[in-house]
Structures are given as structure tokens and as C-alpha cells.
Design a binder for these strands. Structure first.
Length: 656
DNA sequence: GACTGGACCGCCCTCTGCTGGAGATGC
DNA sequence: AGCATCTCCAGCAGAGGGCGGTCCAGTC
């Protein structure tokens, strides 16, 4: 019989990387020792991406592997057909499973390194009994059943001498209830294979009906506490593994040692024995500084070096030094050679470390394995979950050393210090306008709000112009700001507001739509009617009187008192006129507006309105109380106001 | 047994970008 | 005065780089 040479499952990236560099090897290796092998030579990143993107899943689900075994010594022909079937995720929690292998111990050895057409090993072993085993060792990383959910295959043999009489192998990993079910018509029909701690499954073949061509594989749990014929995990497994039963000699001269706990094999006894120690808890080497124990002296020495700060591996290109050579190699790749062996098959990303590629691939697949226990958030790596948890705890570990404001993230604090306490604070100038914004992200918002193309037409409020950019619309509308858009058809009067024009038109039409209900007197504007009503018909109305401190004369309006005081020499209201206080200014503005309003009416020829307006605040003043100079001033005021001159400016004019 | 290097997990950091509240400003 | 809009700002998440440390298998 051919020598056993089963690919070790754990040699993942190393081997695959080599293959990746040698694509010419092809998928199908030449048969060795009478064994036909097919390997998938895709790189790990390709495998990862393919499985997670669904393409791999498709291939798994659609393809049926049919392998024709190379003739053995007896020139027998074996055909194995693999089929895949969906497992419901709740049925079998196999999210972490990545590597599937089946080892049928007695009859045919099958190692499926990946559920697909490319990775199948068949190997004939010594026939011992009808009871046959297959083990499905499922390891992490390559086979996420969260998405793929594969597991059914039928192994068909034709004329398999070693496996019994012309039998067919059928392995059915049924999807129901998280169990893997044996095919019908068997003496035993075990429902086993729940997920184990080691994620290891045994598939036990049972002899089928003698008349049947099928040999049925029962998949059972490797959690041997549930298996009478299997020792418990850990120490017991190791003891079993050490048994000579596991150190079988194949037909060739070469001896291969198989671990029954995992898929490890080695041609060297020393390696095998060392490996078996990994299945025990034996850690005889104690660190006297922290009492931590290690399996080997090398591990202990590296650990002690972390205590002592001893870093024997120094970088030739910089002054960094490391405890282990592996760290130095990684550092060199990161900092100096920039070699990135782990390439994403879905984008241009490449990384120095496999774990980084694995993390990156999640950004394609959307996988979020780290679930927050307090909300629905789930992250793609542990750090983000940890950072997220601060939103629940309220923790703010970062403090500004200047103002002691605390922040949840260091980056936020950094921006804060830069913007609040920095000297040469960077600003971001909008490329489309003069706006300068403190933060780049806010500039982006600005661009989006003001400069983004709008498919819908943005219409000007004042004219028919339309725009597709908000900023252009705003700029355009500003051109209308001081525009006297409303022009009188009967005279040269123009104004900015429609309501002003409406009132003005009445000076031409003579219309007076506001009638006093008490005396039937009519007015062109509502406010004139209101003033009239207050003055003549409201008993509670108390007019404000501005009295001259020198002569005692009263005025209904401050502005009139002001003018009077200039003649009288009392200086009344002068201080107020020149006052800078906010309330004083506001009062002056109010008064001035009233005066302006009344004088506007006068300028428009409405003497009645002017009279009303001029007397709203106090005792009645005859029209002649407005001196010519004042009339001229008010006429000028009217024009100035329409021209946008501020009340402050008008007050200054009045003061002069 | 020692050395070596790959694999893996974990931690921390930076950069980036989006979001929504607050206050300022304009209409 | 009220509303709409804009900028400032902190909060928060996505993505990725780099290193510390441990474990393990191949090799000498």
C-alpha cells in the first residue's frame, strides 16, 4: 500500500503561499503512492474572499466532486462524489468552522481540506473492520458556515476492496436539528455530531445491509464524554493518541504518526511526541517573576525577556529591537521592506499579517462577530467593540491638558486641542466660494449643501431665474436685496416691498379701505386707523408726552422735543440723541421710524395721514408744527431709508 | 534542545468621515 | 419674533498600521 502522506491541515498560509507563487503547479497534483490528490492552490486570501463573498459558496453548492481514484495496487477504482447541502445555522453552530477533513481510518482515508472540488485526498489504509471512522476536523478560519453552511457529501466507491464489498460510501450530514444523520436502512442510525469544544467530529462508518452497496458513515461527536468508545478530551485524548494504534506503519518504509485528537501527522517521532504535549496541560517551565508556566524553555525564555526588557533581535535599519525574531521580521516588513504577502482578492488591499487581511475581509463580507451585550451594535473587531462600550459606560479616558475637557476618543481630543488651543489652526477654504471652514468634514458638508448640483430647479424668489446650485441662487438673490423692484405705474415712485407699493397706489386711486367704526373716518393704511382709534375713541389710551425741561412745553414725539430743544437751548434729549446705550438707541430708532413714517405719508401728499402719524403719541400738533427744514429733512429721510441708510446714520444726520 | 519563522490574538494608535446639537446669522 | 440656514463642535464608527506577546511546527 502506498505510504501515507496526508496534508497537515494546520500548515495553512505557509504552504498556500508557496503554491500561490507557483501557480503553474495546477490544481491536480500527480498521483503519488497510488493516491490521487487534488489540491486547491488558491491563496488563503482568495479562499477567504471567495467563501465570504458567496462565490465560494456557490461553487460549493453547485459542484459535485467526482474523483476517480488512481489505481491502487489492486488496480481498484474509487469514485468519491461530494455533494454539499445547507445546514441551518441554528441547527449547527458552525460559524467558526473553516476546515473540513474526513479521515476514514480503516477503509479509505479521506481528507477534505476544503469543501469544494479541489481539495480531496483519498487514501487507502489497512482494512481492519467494517466499523470505519471518519473524522471531520473543523478548524477555524477558512470555512465560515455562517454564510456557507455546507456539509453533505456522498462518498461513493466502486470496487473498493479495502472498504468492503463493492460498497458505496455515503456520508450524509443531514441538516436537521443540528445533527448529522445516517443514511437510511442501517443497523445503526446515530444522530450525533453536535459541535464540540474542539470542533471536531468523528464520522463512524457502520456496516450497512450486506446486500446494499452502501457503507454508512455515522457522524459522531468527538466530545468523548458522550462516546463510550472515545476517551475524554485533553489528557485522555493524549493518552489515546500516544498509543501505538496511532503510530501506524504504512506499506512503504516511511512511518507516519497520526494524532487522533487533531489532524496532525508527522514522520518524526520527536515531532509527534512534542505535538502530543500540546494536548496536555503539562507546562513544566515556570516563570519565577509572574508564576506563569510554559511548555518549553524557549517560550519561558521569551517570556522572561518581556520582563527584563531583553530584546536580542535588533533591526539593522532602525534602532528598534524585539524579543523574538518573528517580531523583527514583521517590523521589517512594516517599516522597511513593505512586503505585504497577504493580498485581498476583492480589492487592492494587502497586509503584512494574515490577521489584518482577515479583519479587512470583514469589510467586504459585512461580518460583525463582536456583538455588544447592551445594544444591537456589532463590530468587526474587538477594539471597536471596546471603544463602542464607552458609549454605554460614559467613560471618557482622554482629557485635554489645557482645559481639562474629557473625550471618548483620542482623535476627538486631538482635534479639540488643535482647534481650540492651537496657534496655527489650519483652515479649509472652499474651492467654489470664499468660505473658510475650520474642519475638513464641515467643509464637505458645506460643499454638499451649497455647491452640490441639484437636479431640481432652484427658482429665484424675485425673478424667473433658475439655478442648479444653491450657492448660486443665494448669491443671485442678494442682487435683489437693495433693488426697488416695485415701480409705480402712475409716477416715478419705486420701493422694495410690495406692501409699500399697495399703500402708495392708494394715493393715486384715493382708496381708503380702513374705516373707523366709531366716526366713519376713512384711512389708507391700517396703522393710521389704529392710531386714530386709540387717540379719539380709546378711553384707556395714555399718550406719551415729552416735556421740555426749560419751557415745559409738551411734545408727542421725542424727535419734536429734540428739535424744539435746539431752538429753546435746553439741550433736551441731546444726550439721548447721542447716547450709545442699546435701549436709548432702540428708543430713538423707534421714534425716528414713526417720524419717518408720518413724514413719508406727508411726502406722499397724504396730509391727514401725516397728521395722524405725527400726533399718535401725544397732544395734537398742527401740520405747521413741521417746519420746512424739517419737511425737507423728512423728505430726505424717506429717500435715505429707501436707499438702505440705517437709523443710526439718520440720527447722526439729525444731530447735525 | 535550540533556533527560526509563521500564525494568531490582543491592544493601541491614527486618520477619516458622518451625524446631530448648539449657537450665530440672515431673512 | 420666528424661522431657516450655516458653521462650530463633540460624539461616534470604519478602516487600517504597528507592535507585544504567545504558541507551535519545521529544522538543525
Amino acid at each position: 500500500m502506498a505510504a501515507t502522506e496526508i496534508s497537515v491541515l494546520s500548515e495553512q498560509f505557509t504552504k498556500i503561499k508557496e503554491l500561490e507563487l507557483m501557480p503553474e503547479k495546477g490544481l491536480k497534483e500527480e498521483e503519488k503512492d497510488g493516491v490521487c490528490r487534488e489540491k486547491d492552490h488558491r491563496s488563503p486570501s482568495e479562499l477567504e474572499a471567495e467563501r465570504t463573498s458567496g462565490a465560494f459558496q456557490d461553487s460549493v453548492l453547485e459542484e459535485e466532486v467526482e474523483l476517480v481514484l488512481a489505481p491502487s495496487e489492486e488496480s481498484e477504482k474509487h469514485i468519491l462524489t461530494l455533494q454539499t447541502v445547507h445546514f441551518t445555522s441554528e441547527a449547527v453552530e458552525l460559524q467558526d468552522m473553516s476546515l473540513l477533513s474526513i479521515q476514514q481510518q480503516e477503509g479509505v482515508q479521506v481528507v477534505v481540506q476544503q469543501p469544494g472540488p479541489g481539495l480531496l485526498w483519498l487514501e487507502e489504509g489497512p482494512r481492519q473492520s467494517l466499523q470505519q471512522y471518519a473524522a471531520i476536523g473543523i478548524q477555524q478560519e477558512l470555512y465560515s458556515l455562517q454564510e456557507i453552511e455546507v456539509l453533505q457529501f456522498h462518498a461513493l466507491e466502486e470496487n473498493v476492496m479495502v472498504a468492503s464489498e463493492d460498497s458505496k460510501l455515503a456520508v450524509s450530514l443531514a441538516e436537521t436539528a443540528g445533527l448529522i444523520k445516517v443514511e437510511e436502512g442501517q443497523e445503526k442510525n446515530q444522530l450525533l455530531a453536535e459541535r464540540t469544544k474542539e470542533q471536531l467530529f468523528f464520522v463512524e462508518t457502520m456496516s450497512g445491509d450486506e446486500r446494499s452497496d452502501e457503507i454508512v458513515l455515522t457522524v459522531s461527536n468527538s466530545n468523548v464524554e458522550e462516546q463510550e468508545d472515545q476517551p475524554t478530551a485533553g489528557q485522555a485524548d493524549a493518552e489515546k493518541a500516544r498509543s501505538t494504534k496511532n503510530q501506524r506503519k504504512t506499506k512503504g518504509a516511511k512511518q507516519t504518526f497520526h494524532c487522533d485528537v487533531c489532524m496532525f501527522t508527522s514522520s518524526r517521532m520527536s515531532s509527534f511526541n512534542r505535538h502530543m504535549k500540546t494536548h496536555t496541560n503539562e507546562k513544566p517551565h515556570l516563570c519565577h517573576l509572574c508564576l506563569k508556566t510554559f511548555r518549553t524553555v524557549t517560550l519561558l525564555r521569551n517570556h522572561v525577556n518581556t520582563h527584563t526588557g531583553t530584546r536580542p533581535y535588533k533591526c539593522n535599519d532602525c534602532n528598534m529591537a524585539f524579543v523574538t525574531s518573528g517580531e523583527l521580521v514583521r517590523h521589517t516588513r512594516y517599516k522597511h521592506t513593505h512586503e505585504k504577502p497577504f493580498k485581498c482578492s476583492m480589492c487592492k488591499y494587502a497586509s503584512v499579517e494574515a490577521s489584518k487581511l482577515k479583519r479587512h475581509v470583514r469589510s467586504h463580507t459585512g461580518e460583525r462577530p463582536f456583538q455588544c451585550c447592551q445594544c444591537s451594535y456589532a463590530s468587526r473587531d474587538t477594539y471597536k467593540l471596546k471603544r463602542h462600550m464607552r458609549t454605554h459606560s460614559g467613560e471618557k479616558p482622554y482629557e485635554c491638558h489645557i482645559c481639562h475637557t474629557r473625550f471618548t476618543q483620542s482623535g476627538t481630543m486631538k482635534i479639540h486641542i488643535l482647534q481650540k488651543h492651537g496657534e496655527n489652526v489650519p483652515k479649509y477654504q472652499c474651492p467654489h466660494c470664499a468660505t473658510i471652514i475650520a474642519r475638513k468634514s464641515d467643509l464637505r458638508v458645506h460643499m454638499r449643501n451649497l455647491h452640490a448640483y441639484s437636479a431640481a430647479e432652484l427658482k429665484c424668489r424675485y425673478c424667473p431665474a433658475v439655478f442648479h446650485e444653491r450657492y448660486a441662487l443665494i448669491q443671485h438673490q442678494k442682487t435683489h436685496k437693495n433693488e426697488k423692484r416695485f415701480k409705480c405705474k402712475h409716477c416715478s415712485y419705486a420701493c422694495k416691498q410690495e406692501r409699500h407699493m399697495t399703500a402708495h397706489i392708494r394715493t393715486h386711486t384715493g382708496e381708503k379701505p380702513f374705516t373707523c367704526l366709531s366716526c366713519n373716518k376713512c384711512f389708507r393704511q391700517k396703522q393710521l386707523l389704529n392710531a386714530h382709534f386709540r387717540k379719539y375713541h380709546d378711553a384707556n389710551f395714555v399718550p406719551t408726552v415729552y416735556k421740555c425741561s426749560k419751557c415745559g412745553k409738551g411734545f408727542s414725539r421725542w424727535i419734536n422735543l429734540h428739535r424744539h430743544s435746539e431752538k429753546c437751548g435746553s439741550g433736551e434729549a441731546k444726550s439721548a440723541a447721542s447716547g450709545k446705550g442699546r435701549r436709548t438707541r432702540k428708543r430713538k430708532q423707534t421714534i425716528l421710524k414713526e417720524a419717518t413714517k408720518g413724514q413719508k405719508e406727508a411726502a406722499n401728499g397724504d396730509e391727514a395721514a401725516a397728521e395722524e402719524a405725527s400726533t399718535t403719541k401725544g397732544e395734537q400738533f398742527p401740520g405747521e408744527m413741521f417746519p420746512v427744514a424739517c419737511r425737507e429733512t423728512t423728505a430726505r429721510v424717506k429717500e435715505e431709508v429707501d436707499e438702505g441708510v440705517t437709523c443710526e446714520m439718520l440720527l447722526n444726520m439729525m444731530d447735525k
